[in-house]
């Protein structure tokens, strides 16, 4: 689980990129608090073969990345 709340882009997507490079996960959860981060992480995920599910609650977003 990556908690990137309070960070502005591109830092959250950079954190996701680092984690994917480091541990090649088949699943990854990311917590962010802006739509821009959701969009950016979704673009990264799609490029690298992950399906993305996003849930919103109280202005915070949980992205679940699952390797296709």
């Amino acid at each position: 689980m990556i908690d990137a709340r309070g960070l502005s882009c591109p830092m959250p997507v950079v954190m996701v990129q680092k984690e994917v490079k480091k541990s090649d996960p088949s699943e990854l959860e990311v917590l962010v608090d802006s739509m821009v981060c959701v969009e950016n992480i979704t673009r990264f995920a799609n490029t690298h073969g992950f399906a993305v599910e996003t849930k919103e609650a109280g202005g915070e977003y949980t992205l679940r990345l699952v390797k296709r």
């Binding site: 882009c9 821009v36 969009e39 979704t42 673009r43």
Partner: peptide, 9 residues
């Protein structure tokens, strides 16, 4: 960079 989600608000 765009493909990797490095995009400005």
């Amino acid at each position: 960079l765009a493909r990797n989600g490095i995009l400005p608000e």
